[in-house]
Amino acid sequence: MPVLDREEYIEQAYFFHAFRERVLDGLPSQDVLSRISEELLSTTRLPLAVSYLATEIKTIGLMAPAMVRIGHYFTPFQTHVIAEAEHDTSRFPMDQALLILEREARYKADGPTLSGLFVYQFEAMSRNRLGYGKGLEAIAADPFFTEDWHDYILLLRARLGDVDFADLIFVRSAFYVTEQKRRNPGFEPKFPILFGEKEGKIARANRGRDPLYLFSALQRQLNYPEVPRPRRPDEAEARIALLEQRVALLENRLKSAESDIHNEIDLAQLRVKPEDTAGPPAGWGKHEPT
């Protein structure tokens, strides 16, 4: 698939943002997709793509399969992120997925560097545990990346875990070539150089450290796009729910104590409700012939 026009990425960023906000407000995804296409710029292809998503989600309840079918518009990375959020057993929330895609689309609209785009997608994949195998394949298929980048990204599948990620950036940087030429003026790199001098310096400074420190340094020093952090569980809500349970338990105990004092027994508390049982016993209400 070719790289889309800038206006397409601008509209995509708006679409993912508006979609996320309305889903967080409690609106059904089907309703959001059915209406939001009217807000999008009609000179782009996004309204048609969203209309197709709206039709498919009403049929199968998922967006990712529909995004695969229109792979000439949505990238494999976008499809992979949505698919991971739609898994039944996934802990990756849809609003997080939409926020990742919103920032990616905005970065593409602003004219990304290939190194910045790769690091953003890789960090999003690693932070949210979206799977390195399929994830790297999806990243490599992004139309922004050249053939050299495509080969490099697929190479990472075999090297990750054995080689430090910072080293994988450092040895493909212009800074690495400069360092080698100081020692050997005739040095020529065996592989294409994909990262600049500054990326190489930052990568060397973070060798042997947590890759998250590397990502953070690249964002601070080179204005790489920031990947949204996974949300932490809201401890306040959990504590409130626990307090409500304890208050309800105390109320029941107080009622029981008051009834004991007044020698009053609430038969409703002792009555077994049908919904609390597995159902009436077999043959209940039937009399055997004598």
Rank of each mutant, 00 (worst) to 15 (best):
G196W: 10
E251K: 01
A97K: 12
Y176P: 02
R69V: 04
H72S: 14
V177G: 10
R172Y: 13
N223T: 13
V163F: 09
D95P: 02
E264Y: 15
V163H: 05
L218F: 06
R231G: 13
A66N: 10
T79W: 07
R209S: 15
L267H: 11
K201F: 07
D167Q: 13
L222I: 11
I202Q: 07
A282T: 03
G279V: 02
E264C: 13
P233D: 14
G279D: 04
W284Y: 13
H87W: 08
V171D: 10
Q221A: 15
P281S: 00
L27I: 04
E244S: 07
L218I: 08
L40F: 04
L154T: 15
F92W: 05
R204G: 02
T55L: 10
N128V: 01
A278S: 11
Y152I: 11
E264Q: 15
L101I: 13
R239K: 11
R106T: 00
L254E: 02
A241G: 06
H80A: 09
K201Y: 06
T43R: 07
T55N: 09
Y176N: 09
P47E: 03
L154Q: 14
F144M: 11
E11Q: 14
N252V: 01
E226Q: 13
E226Y: 04
R209Y: 07
L168T: 10
I82R: 06
T277Q: 12
G285S: 07
L117K: 10
D276V: 00
V163N: 11
G283W: 05
A13F: 03
